[in-house]
Amino acid sequence: MLHSATERKGEGVSLEAHTASVRQMMRACIQCGTCSASCPNAGAMDMTPRRIWRCVQMDSFEEIFTSQTFTLCSSCYYCSLRCPRGLQPADAMAALKCIAAARQMPQHRSSTLFYRYFLRSVRRNGRVHEMEVMTGYFAHMKNPLLPLRYASLGWKLTSKGKISLPRPARGKGKLDALFAKVAQVEEEN
């Protein structure tokens, strides 16, 4: 079972309900572009962060999710550092990632799956098992070439004694209770 908060909601919840928190976060944006001018990934983005926030205000979430921009946020927090409105654009980007994950948007599988397998590992072990994450991620991406991109690194890591083979899953995850409780609390709210 993967993380409930991301997977139980799924399609049943309206996009509007999902996006409410992002709207709340970025409503007060003044479109000054401070965030965008500082973004190290701006060059790779197909839409400026400022435009994303404009779309948030105008309720054009479809447009946001057709864009890859939010997945390109590397959480460097340059934007949050200087937002004159005191907003947290990096956090809002994370929130958009959450939505994409929760709604399992196919166009954002690459990012959301990675997070999902990461958390799956955390849930099971309490701590992250890097190899376990990668294995799960690569398997789910169903891209036979993808693992090769990381093959040399994986080999290097293993040879340096930095990766151990994942332990077999045994019954209850260490943080099952916490994940479940989070889901429960989120549900209530």
Binding site: G33, A37, S38, R82
Partner: peptide, 14 residues
């Protein structure tokens, strides 16, 4: 107009 002041709407990050 007279002094060619350029106006830019936007903020500079840093």
């Amino acid at each position: 107009e007279q002094d060619q002041l350029r106006l830019v709407r936007g903020r500079v990050h840093s």
